[in-house]
């Protein structure tokens, strides 16, 4: 049995189920009693807590709360703000299990919105999953559909490890209304319909952390992406099919752990790879995939579409800066 729902609603459904099943699950962050009103009404003020604008303190507190019996879902409103709480994630959440000799779990979910396409500028539109995914000791997941959003959140809450759960704002109508003024009929955002709404199983089917999925299979080129990028790839693949070029689209779903098996297999199948990454070009996920293929001796022609500079504010500049269908098509055509 499944029902149709929005991406944000799917996440809320997963959290609601977890909070109903386990009294140790709670959520806190800035404005959550407004943003997560349904959870507040269902589970009470002790388990849905507004936090001061002090990410350092409340993310740090979430780490030890998780280490001492609770299952916190801490919200960092925008992943860009993780910068002021980076110590908690880098030096505590990611380290304490290792420091303890592998014995002390940190069952923490860090939930943050991410991504651009609604003109919020370069301090509010980053994704940072490459940065976060490179840190040993934490998992990073990036769902691109409501079903995956619910399934990955369910797995994240159940995990004994710290999981960073990144929800793209173009897919999450709660965020787009809240931050982007999406309620205005005069403004249009390029929201991928299949990512923003879709079927979600009841009960929710957990999605294993670290498993990619093939969204479309073609023999001539492999497009590897995640988040909104998956939908841009699907659109590009549709266009390529019209030109007689069949593309595979891989949705990574997890940045860390990375589903290396799927990446290698699907890359080897076509020998032509384009990584479409809304994160920065350098020092991140797209380079990691290139290294992975090189280490596995997979001979491919390789290209990447990523963010190369600070994301600009103006709509047309923002469009050019983020991975878009035109850039993906150009990258495919330039491959050997």
């Amino acid at each position: 049995m499944n029902s149709q729902m929005g991406y944000a609603q799917a996440i809320e459904r997963a959290i609601d189920s977890a909070m109903t099943a386990d009294p140790r699950v709670l959520t806190f962050g800035e404005d959550v009693r407004l943003l997560r009103r349904n959870l507040l009404v269902g589970h009470g003020a002790d388990r849905v807590m507004d936090a001061p604008i002090s990410e350092s303190a409340f993310l740090g507190a979430a780490v030890t709360a998780a280490m001492s019996g609770l299952r916190p879902i801490v919200e960092i409103m925008l992943v860009d703000f993780i910068a002021v709480a980076f110590d908690g994630i880098l030096n505590h959440a990611a380290k304490n299990t290792a420091f303890s000799g592998g014995t002390w779990d940190v069952p923490l979910v860090v939930r943050a919105s991410c991504g651009g396409g609604y003109a919020d500028g370069g301090q509010h539109e980053q994704v940072l999953w490459g940065l976060l995914g490179g840190i040993p000791g934490i998992d990073v997941v990036v769902p691109s559909t409501p079903a995956d959003a619910a399934g990955l959140m369910t797995s994240a809450i159940a995990s004994k490890r710290p999981v960073v759960f990144l929800e793209h704002k173009l897919l999450s109508d709660y965020w787009l209304d809240y931050l982007g003024g999406n309620s205005r009929p005069t403004v249009e955002f390029d929201v991928p319909v299949e990512g923003a709404n879709g079927p979600v199983d009841d009960p929710i089917q957990p999605v294993p952390i670290g498993s990619a999925v093939v969204r479309r299979r073609g023999s001539e080129v492999t497009l590897i992406s995640l988040g909104v990028g998956v939908h841009r790839c699907s659109e590009a693949a549709e266009s390529l099919a019209g030109q007689g070029v069949e593309a595979t689209v891989v949705d990574l779903r997890s940045v860390s752990p990375l589903d290396t098996e799927t990446v290698i297999r699907e890359s080897a199948n076509t020998s032509r790879v384009v990584v479409v990454d809304e994160d920065y070009l350098r020092g991140g996920l797209s380079g990691e995939i290139a290294a992975l293929l090189a280490e596995a001796d997979v001979p491919v022609s390789f290209s990447r579409v990523a963010v190369e500079h600070t994301i600009p504010y103006a709509r047309h500049l923002e469009h050019d800066a983020l991975p878009n269908v035109e850039r993906i098509l150009a990258a495919v055509h330039e491959l050997r």
Binding site: G60, V63, T64, G69, D87, G88
Partner: peptide, 21 residues
């Protein structure tokens, strides 16, 4: 912990779980 000041947030987290558990 080797990061100066981090005992503050850490104690808050312990105290948060103490309140309920």
């Amino acid at each position: 912990d080797g990061i100066v000041g981090s005992a503050g947030p850490a104690a808050c987290g312990f105290a948060l779980s103490a309140k309920t558990l």
